[in-house]
Design a protein around this nucleic acid. Structure first.
Lengths: 159, 159
DNA sequence: CTCCGATCGTGCGTAGACGCACGAATTCCA
DNA sequence: TGGAATTCGTGCGTCTACGCACGATCGGAG
């Protein structure tokens, strides 16, 4: 039987392992794993996101994204301009240098992605992604169900 | 088809969602999600781990564990004593207050664990934990295979 | 017994992840 | 149209996750 605690620990371990590996790999190129995620989100996002939209797509926090953008902008990988119609917002986009760096980083990270996929049998990657999606969905504060959070006090885990 | 990148993003999203939820829940009790992990590891570890062993079991860094211990010790949840036989090491253990807090926190986190498990069908929790374990294993720097990291330049993902 | 390499913890610096409180701009609706 | 609620970004503080360079200690090889 797998308890919620075990699941949480497994999730934590896997994420931290991935993050460490990626950080170590990308460090040679002067960026962090999270900065890569930002650049990738921007690259795939078809130009010009607001900081908030960027944060949303990265499953990250606007405040966090802001400090990352400051670092990336200082290095010329990213550009922040005024939003055309909304004076509150700023648009974010990759610079040419940023796009170039992203392509380089993509290649650099390839073996790590291959390594993760290689650990999984045929079809297991799909399964894993799907299950992770279900957990994410359930954990996101999006729509807290009207029914009280835990109706029957489930005693699935034990300390 | 699920690419390595999608898998990485799914993993990141799930972990961050879990972490956020947990942090929010535990904040009322004055501890963070990661501090809970430390306390749980200590509680399950059968007393007296070295900082290094604790870090290993938490899938965390000795340096990180140290700063967490400083905070937890200042609040009397944890005790750091000299190691009986190794003058370099220090042993870490829960105080009575720490054990009490841990029990309280365990209950507080229950609905989150239930929520995650509830998003999964029968047997899926086991599957998810297993797949996460495989990925973790593959990503951990433990034994870097003698064969060069990526022999055949696999072109599984696309930017 | 005496080194020398491995190991433990420390201290410092950087980066991320967040919460919260602000000011400014936008939207909505009465 | 005027004001309230909302939304965007900022700034600040805290905690975690590391890497790296130390000093101290341990352990084994000679």
């Amino acid at each position: 039987m797998t308890t919620g605690h075990e699941l949480a620990i497994a999730l934590r371990s896997a994420y931290l392992a991935l993050h460490r590996r990626s950080d170590a790999r990308f460090a040679r190129h002067g960026v962090t794993a999270d900065q890569f995620v930002l650049l990738a989100t921007l690259a795939r996002g078809g130009e010009a996101l607001t900081q908030r939209e960027l944060a949303h797509r990265m499953a990250s926090d606007p405040s966090t994204v802001r400090s990352m953008l400051i670092l990336l902008a200082a290095r010329g990988l990213v550009e922040r301009d005024a939003h055309p119609t909304d004076a509150r917002a700023r648009t974010v986009a990759l610079t040419a240098k940023g796009r170039h760096a992203y392509r380089r980083l993509w290649k650099a990270g390839e073996s790590i992605r291959a390594r993760a996929l290689g650990a999984l049998g045929p079809g297991e990657a799909e399964t894993l992604a799907r299950l992770l999606g279900q957990v994410t969905e359930a954990l996101n504060p999006e729509c807290v169900p009207i029914t009280r959070p835990t109706s029957s006090p489930s005693r699935k885990d034990e300390p």
